[in-house]
């Protein structure tokens, strides 16, 4: 067993604490996350949210940086298509990150680590479900080592 494999298995069995960075748009998904809170819907603490005005504000750079800094999964959540507060922002998100996902797959990252989803301000349930699902995927895949910058502290 190679050194690397040993490390992974030890991390898997012992205390692999995955980190998921979620970019949430201010108008729908961030409010959806708040609703999940007011409804006391549990999801694991490994999910950490960054607020952006619109999902179209998320630059692919941000996603890469998160992976580089050792995030094990990244979620972008915006308003449902047709409901964007800025009329058409989430359409740009949809297109941009379809390409981005292809690119990530091409460079060898498991595409399951990254997802774009639509969560409205009324969908606290969906927010919790999406986060749980993302975390489950990441647990299956194990820690992100492909894009992680070893010099970073995490």
């Amino acid at each position: 067993m190679s050194l690397e494999n040993k490390q992974i298995s030890s991390e898997n069995t012992s205390n692999f604490k995955p980190l998921i960075v979620a970019f949430c748009c201010n108008w729908c998904s961030y409010a959806g996350a708040d609703l999940a809170g007011t409804s006391r819907l549990n999801y694991p603490a490994n999910v950490k949210i960054i607020k952006v005005p619109c999902s179209c504000r998320v630059n692919p750079n941000f996603v890469l940086r998160a992976f580089q800094r050792g995030a094990d999964g990244v979620v972008i959540a915006g308003c449902h298509p047709g409901d964007c507060h800025y009329t058409s922002g989430n359409y740009y998100t949809r297109r941009r990150f379809t390409l981005m996902k292809n690119l990530l797959e091409y460079v060898g990252l498991e595409p399951e680590r990254f997802k774009v989803d639509w969560i409205s301000a009324g969908e606290g349930n969906k927010f919790a479900a999406v986060m749980n699902e993302a975390l489950e995927q990441v647990h299956k895949l194990g820690p992100n080592r492909k894009l992680r910058d070893a010099r970073w502290k995490r």
Binding site: L19, I50, R57, F62, A66, R69, G70, K153
Partner: peptide
């Protein structure tokens, strides 16, 4: 936003 990402990933 990048600073936020960095801080979260610490």
């Amino acid at each position: 936003i990048l600073a936020e990402v960095d801080a979260i990933c610490l």
